[in-house]
Design a protein around this nucleic acid. Structure first.
Lengths: 199, 199, 199, 199
DNA sequence: GATGAATGAGCTTTCATTCAT
DNA sequence: TATGAATGAAAGCTCATTCAT
């Protein structure tokens, strides 16, 4: 009665859809499943989302934003690339554990998706790669790392994060995210650090 | 009768399925599509594969094997980890370009897949991670790299490879695979190399 | 407050329904459409009409009455069959042009209607045929026309009127209704007129 | 085994659809109904007709052709307009009795049909009006009738035929089609015949 | 072996109707 | 009175799978 947001029905449905899609897969989930999970009638889902396709797209949008926002926030909270990367990793791993659905749907990729759908995922991933590249470019300007191919390194970082998060999602990851993050960034660091600092 | 492999009908269907699934997505492809692509009747597909599910599983099996075999072959052909990794990268990138379907289906992951299906993909990826871990362990024993967390490094390498290959599949990669491979391995190397060699 | 009829809400809804049904077809119109056209809430429609079916039936009732009333009025206003028919035609054509919805819904018939529905239309058309037959019988008694099969002639007249009105509804009719009516009645007249007058 | 055409499955479905649509109305009939009536599975209907809409359109096409063909044949079989009209009437009435579905669906019109659908019906009716107008024009050239507005007369004839046939379809018509036809044509004739012949 | 016509379970989506406010 | 969010029955349509030929 007193506290918390009123349980917005649209959000309830959105999260239920994430749960269901993540559990049974998009195509093997029915709108009936989603409605049941949300505790509403089938027609109600259509009151908030015009189609099943719109529902999955909204989920993708939501997921990518969650990820990008995390990267942005961690970037602003710190000024040292090393700390930034560590913070991002810790945050993303935590997010993955808390919010398996969203992360999973976004990170797992797009097997069996139609071209149109795939385009969506590609665009989303591009945004992230850009963010990582920006981060690296800024660190270069600050002299924190040497001159590297930022696009390539963005790939290595994004790929590594993906791989680690996937492991978390699949419940096989080490529980100590801080230590894991440190190790990973350490591994990247040798390749990134400026020669002078290296010396 | 005389030359080449006899055009095994099962393989024709398998490759046609890859083409179709890769183009339209698994769920949006029909068995009719597959049959047409293979130039056979719909019933014939069922003569060689008991179900659509069996077909996609066979494709996954095939794809992962293609990948693992490549890793194995490159591992045996070379004795230096650096060279091994470079060779693997070059080979896998080439494979991705040649055989977009198989690689794509395997690498792109599993969004919207059902749990059962996902298990398949996880197992497949585990096999690869094991291979990379083995490679690193052997290199450690040979003193080529220092003592690192091989599981973590396996993740970084596998993830990086995935990310790069995905780019190739999406037609955005640099055309010079050799140079790209060298750069990538270089990046990894600083983190991997034994202190002594580093000095 | 002072002048005109009070804008009876039931009538507003009825006319809105006519508009909508006539524009989009009965089955392709939703109760939501009707409510929106009437500027009321969906629930309000149900306050005045128990169901969609009841709504269309009321429209039919209204439409047939409009038609029959016209025939009755023109019959009373004139005493010569020729003038009566001409007046009816002119009136009905004008009505069709003014009130496309009602006329259209009634005259266009009943393709794809269910038996139950069809019964309604049949009954309605019967009423009209009776009116025409009465008109002819009276003219016979007055000696204005010779002894003819009034039922058959009622069909010919009703059918002809239908066909002409349909053309008006479809926007292909001549604009001069008076001339058209005269021509049509002329055409009928030769067959109807009493031999004596003919001579 | 020996005689008759092989029972073409497409035709079986088409006729079943006519039966069902005519009985329950287009919108109140389901594809399941049609399939059941035809004694086939639901999917089989879609093997021969791509959609419910396509099915009704095919029925319309079929019906209008049945009607137009009858008019054409009777026109060619006779050279005197009077005989032509009588033959057409007799033929069409018989057709209506034999093949209630097709005739009914075509003749009853288009209440509650969507605009698009209505266009179809209008076009179909136009074809018929043209045929009647041609018939009248030819008779005028042959001097069999005087100079009349052939479009208007086409309307009167078409409308009258419609009205009569509708009565037959609704089971209220006189059983003696020949006599009925003669009476009707008689009625028209006075208005049509050339003055000279009239004298 | 090879085929493709036939099937029906099961999907997404619509919408007349209800009812708490 | 008036409303519109909520509902679920029911529709059109798809397609993996079967089987007579």
């Amino acid at each position: 009665m007193a506290a918390g947001q009123p349980p917005n029905k649209r959000d309830v449905i959105l999260h239920s859809a994430m749960q269901v899609f993540s559990r049974k897969g998009f195509h093997d989930s029915t709108m009936e499943d989603v409605a049941q999970e949300a505790g509403v009638g089938k027609g109600t889902v259509y009151l908030y989302f015009p189609s099943k396709q719109a529902l999955i797209e909204e989920i993708f949008r939501y997921s990518i934003n969650l990820y990008v926002d995390a990267v942005d926030k961690m970037s602003q909270d710190h000024t040292c690339l090393r700390t930034q990367l560590e913070a991002i990793l810790v945050h993303v791993l935590a997010m993955a554990e808390r919010n398996q659905q969203a992360s999973g749907l976004f990170l797992e990729g797009a097997t069996g998706m139609s071209e149109e759908f795939k385009g969506w995922v590609i665009d989303s991933k591009s945004i992230l790669l850009d963010r990582y590249a920006d981060l690296l470019a800024q660190a270069t300007q600050r002299g924190q790392i040497r001159l590297v191919d930022v696009r390539m390194w963005a790939h290595l970082i994004a790929g590594g994060v993906d791989s680690l998060v996937t492991t978390v999602l699949w419940g096989k990851a080490a529980p100590d995210h801080h230590r894991l993050a440190q190790q990973v960034v350490d591994a990247w660091w040798s390749g990134l650090m400026s020669r002078e600092l290296n010396a």
